[in-house]
Amino acid sequence: MEDLDRWLTHTRFSNPGRHARSIAALSADVARLNEIIQGVLVHSSWLREYGLDTPRLDAGARTTLPFAERLDDILARDPRPLEAQRPPELRSIGTCRDYALMLCAILRAKGIPARVRCGFAAYFHLVWEDHWVCEYWDARRRSWRLSDAQIDPMLKRQNRIDFNPADMPREVFLTAGEAWTKCRRAEADAGDFGHGETTGMWFIKVNVLRDHHVLNGRETSLWDRWREAPAASRTVCDEELQLLDSLAARLEQELIAATPEWIV
């Protein structure tokens, strides 16, 4: 049995801080928590689908905030209890990582081991699209389960999603390590994995490193600047393969020092 206490301990980014009392009052049911989170967040890439103008997207929308600061932003826009579903124009704008971090933080506060995971989803535009979800420990089944708090009724309809977002089948989401290993074994095509037009083994490497960092308590996006990587560096060198194979097999191992400057 792995040390589940590791996934109960708050990081600086998952700690509810001054909001601990209001978080304690929330349900511990994952499906209900997903609904609550959907009622206070809106994804920066889907503003039009929620009837919002894209000019509302500010420069900080892609910056992953600490959970306590995200709650400050939510309540500044609408001071009602978190259980009250906000109209889209009063929700805080974030990305899939914010949905995953929020669910992870609440579950940890409830005494449920949880962690944010970086990987690839099979239910958006690409065959395997860059995405973040929450992984939580199910004590009854004694296993890790996946939940995507972003998947609300609109996204279900838009993407024809028919699974339960609070308990996702493993075949619809691959962690970065799983994706790396499948491609290295020629069980999957690396060109099917990526973000927009950026696909292939280099981007899978990016997500291996991001999942490695997040499993070591670095959920923030401040270090995550893969878009700044120059074209010449968007490769996977032979010297990197052994390290990346090792990380893919055990992403939660102690944080490595040798990471590219654009991701640290």
Rank of each mutant, 00 (worst) to 15 (best):
D3G: 04
D3V: 02
D3A: 10
W7F: 11
W7K: 02
L8R: 13
H10Y: 12
T11D: 08
T11S: 15
S14L: 01
G17C: 08
A20Y: 09
R21M: 14
A24K: 14
A28Y: 06
V30F: 00
L33R: 00
I36L: 11
Q38I: 05
G39A: 10
V40R: 12
L41S: 00
V42L: 12
S44V: 09
S45E: 08
E49D: 15
E49P: 04
Y50N: 03
P55Q: 00
P55N: 06
L57N: 13
G60R: 07
A61I: 11
L65S: 11
L65T: 01
A68S: 14
R70A: 12
L71C: 05
I74Y: 10
L75M: 06
R77K: 15
P79Q: 13
P79N: 12
P79A: 08
L82R: 10
Q85N: 14
P87A: 01
P87E: 01
P88K: 04
L90N: 00
R91F: 11
R91H: 00
I93W: 03
G94K: 04
G94I: 09
G94Y: 06
D98K: 06
L103D: 01
L103F: 01
A105I: 05
I106C: 00
L107M: 00
R108S: 05
A109F: 03
A109Q: 15
P113R: 01
V116R: 02
F120G: 01
A121W: 08
Y123K: 04
L126F: 01
V127H: 08
W128F: 13
W132H: 05
W137M: 02
D138T: 03
A139G: 07
R141C: 05
R145W: 09
D148I: 02
D152K: 07
D152F: 08
L155V: 03
R157D: 11
R160L: 10
D162H: 13
M168S: 05
M168W: 01
F173H: 04
A176W: 12
A176M: 09
G177M: 07
E178G: 10
E178A: 15
T181S: 15
K182M: 15
C183K: 07
R185T: 05
A186W: 05
A186Q: 15
E187K: 08
A188M: 01
D189Y: 07
A190D: 13
G191W: 11
G191K: 08
D192P: 03
H195C: 14
G196T: 06
T199N: 08
M201T: 13
W202Y: 15
K205V: 06
V206W: 04
H213P: 02
V214K: 02
L215V: 01
L215H: 02
N216F: 14
G217P: 05
G217E: 02
G217C: 06
R218A: 06
T220W: 13
W223H: 07
R225H: 14
E228L: 15
A229L: 10
P230S: 03
A231F: 03
A231V: 08
A231P: 00
A231H: 08
S233L: 12
S233E: 14
V236H: 09
D238N: 09
E239D: 13
E239Q: 12
E239V: 11
E240T: 09
L241R: 14
L241V: 15
L243Q: 13
A248F: 13
L251H: 00
E252V: 00
Q253N: 10
I256V: 15
W262R: 03
I263Q: 08
I263M: 14
